[in-house]
Simulated scan of single mutants.
Amino acid sequence: MLYKDIHIGHFIKERVEEKEITMERICNFLNRDEEFIEKVYHSKSIDTDLLLRWSKLLEYDFFRLYSSHLILYAPPAAVNKNDTPKSDKIPYFRKNIYTQEIKDFIIGKILSGEMTHNEIIQEYSIPKSTLHRWLQKIRNNNK
């Protein structure tokens, strides 16, 4: 799965086909017509409220695609953590939490020979020790 270039309409259509949900049910749930649904399938991006409704209908967290993109492609901030102003008005999340999908994506790149350890470390800013820990778990599970 590619997290670099996300075409959300494609992922939504894939999930609809996977779940075998009828167009009638989708139209009723979203309160939209078939033409609108087809436009969504061809859209690279959609409104977040609409994406939330699709996530509920299809029982899939489409927002994780974007979170995964941030983890992989947004470099960690080079500021002192104490200098970052915190607000009680919006929630803050730790950036260094890697989902299983992210781990599988990275490990797949290494095992396929597409990227080396050093390329992974440089491209995605994953600490060397973290990468080696993931690979060690794979080796232990294969024994």
Rank of each mutant, 00 (worst) to 15 (best):
H10I: 10
E38H: 09
E114V: 00
E114H: 03
E119W: 04
Y60T: 01
N31L: 01
K103Y: 06
L70T: 14
R53H: 12
C27L: 10
D83S: 13
K4G: 01
Y98T: 06
D61C: 03
T48I: 10
E18G: 04
P85M: 07
L70C: 08
K44Y: 13
L135V: 01
R94V: 11
I121W: 00
E38N: 06
W54F: 14
T99Q: 06
L72R: 08
Q100S: 09
Y73C: 09
I120S: 15
I12D: 08
T22V: 05
S55I: 03
D33V: 08
R64N: 11
D5I: 05
Y60M: 06
Q100N: 04
E17K: 14
E38Y: 12
N141K: 07
S112Y: 14
Q122M: 12
I6R: 13
L135N: 11
I110W: 05
R32M: 02
R53P: 00
R133H: 13
A74G: 02
N31A: 05
D47V: 09
K86W: 05
I46F: 06
L135H: 10
K103V: 14
L135I: 10
K39S: 12
L58A: 10
K13Y: 08
S45D: 14
E14V: 03
Y124S: 08
D5E: 09
F62L: 01
P91A: 15
P76I: 15
E20T: 09
M23K: 14
K143F: 06
R94Q: 12
V16K: 13
F29V: 03
I46A: 07
L111Y: 04
E119L: 01
W134H: 04
K39L: 09
I71V: 15
I106D: 04
W54N: 00
Q100K: 10
K13P: 01
E34W: 02
I110G: 02
S67W: 09
I71H: 12
